Amino acid sequence: MGALRRRVALGMAVLTASGLLTLAAPGSAQAASVCPGREVATLPFSTGTVHVFRRGDYICAYTAPKTPGAKRTMSVSVQARGSRPVVDKGRYIRRAGPVTVHAGHRCVRIKGAVAGGSVGSGWILC
């Protein structure tokens, strides 16, 4: 019975340590995993930045504030030409999104906002 308890305790310790290492990963590694693909555009504005990624026929975007910390209103919107926009809007600390749309070979319009600042791309990635 004691050997079983030791094995369970060891297993829990390994799981806890791996979880802590995941949380302690640098922010750039976390940002890379938000959207798949390669970054094709950044849209900076006064209170944040919208990051846009492409992977095959899909476009993914998220909005990040210049200074994370307090909850504030943020949004991100991606619209493929001829389709309705996909929007994520709410009160967040780190980012709004990600949102992904199937664009194929169509142009997309990207919008993002943090608190009082916002940006819109017009039709891009045609």
Rank of each mutant, 00 (worst) to 15 (best):
V52R: 08
P26Q: 11
A25H: 10
R95W: 01
S77Q: 13
S118M: 02
P98T: 05
T63N: 08
T73H: 09
R95P: 02
K71W: 03
A25C: 00
A61K: 12
A24C: 06
C107D: 09
R81M: 06
T100R: 15
A24M: 15
L21N: 10
S77L: 07
M1I: 12
C126V: 03
R84Q: 13
G120N: 09
G116T: 15
A41D: 09
Y92H: 07
V108W: 06
H105Y: 03
V108S: 04
G116N: 13
V99Y: 04
R81V: 04
V34H: 10
H105E: 09
R95Y: 06
T100W: 04
K89H: 08
G48W: 00
A13D: 00
A31L: 14
K66Q: 15
T22R: 13
R7V: 15
R7W: 07
H51S: 12
I124E: 01
Y62Q: 10
V76G: 07
A41F: 05
I59L: 01
G11F: 01
G82E: 10
G90A: 01
Q79V: 08
A13G: 05
R91P: 01
P85I: 07
C126K: 01
G27T: 11
G122M: 07
R7D: 11
C126G: 06
K89D: 05
H105A: 14
R81N: 06
A70T: 10
G117A: 11
H102M: 09
R81Q: 12
R5L: 14
I93R: 11
T42Y: 02
L23H: 06
G56A: 11
A31M: 14
A32R: 15
V87E: 13
A113V: 00
S118E: 04
T22N: 14
H51G: 02
V50H: 04
L20K: 11
A103H: 04
R54A: 15
A25S: 11
